[in-house]
Amino acid sequence: MSELQHIPQGELGRGWARFKRNRLALGSLVFVGLLVAVALAAPLLAPYSYAEQDLTGRFLPPLSDGHLLGTDELGRDVFSRLIYSLRTALLIGFAAELVALAVALVIGMWAAYQGGRVEQWLMGFTDIMYAFPNYLFAVLLVVIMGRSPLSIIVAIGIASWVNQARLIRAQVLKIKTFEFVEALRSIGTSGFSIAVRHILPNAVGPLLVTTSFGIPLAIIAESGLAILGLGVAPPTPSWGGMIIDGYTYVLGNPQLIVAPLTLFGLTMLAFTWIGDGLRDAFDTGEEDRA
């Protein structure tokens, strides 16, 4: 038990110490970091512009001269488009999750904190939103707001806060039953201070987990919208767009969808493993504890 002394004991520090020991999760985090770096440096790394067409050099196979991953049906460099599509995916993924989390935090915390009628109304509203299946609401919003990145971010964010709000509310309600909340009230701590200074820090773990699972879901929604023809307007590349465009030629040129598919899949796995690592580290999930 003497090694216990060396482990930092703050909530975050403790979680991080445990997270670090999970190699898969740590590797995934490094991978995501790398992806972010690539996305930021896209103009430096991409050999061509994502929109530059070369109708004489269409459907070039991978490893052709100057085109690492070949070219697509319009003769655009697949590698460059892939790098730029990472921008689309990550930007929309992170930003949409931020929107969703903000809405969810406000509604979830407010409902749980206030209780009574406010809670009933807020949760009733949440229940109604829940009746819009899956990505339907996002589709509706994009139809209304158009296909700019901003409106896609807002659409996905607004369509996916519901579950997170429920999770946050449940978490806050759980923490509220802990005896220390009553102890704080008996000391004279104000309700707001209890919520922000004491309940929130105890919900940090679950919040991180929620976020790390929310980002890939937002990316899935973004690509899904592109598959429906409702993603970012061409020629801006996105995984969904590349997939649906390439799919037309899949029998002759399967490499066109293999590249985005691989990157997409790896990104999803990385986020999931990070989320899993966080869940174990903060001991929050439904998973077993020994």
Binding site: G115, G116, L173, K176, T177, V181, E182, A195
Partner: peptide, 9 residues
């Protein structure tokens, strides 16, 4: 139902 109105003083 889960407990309510715990925080309001």
């Amino acid at each position: 139902k889960p407990p309510r109105r715990l925080l309001a003083t």
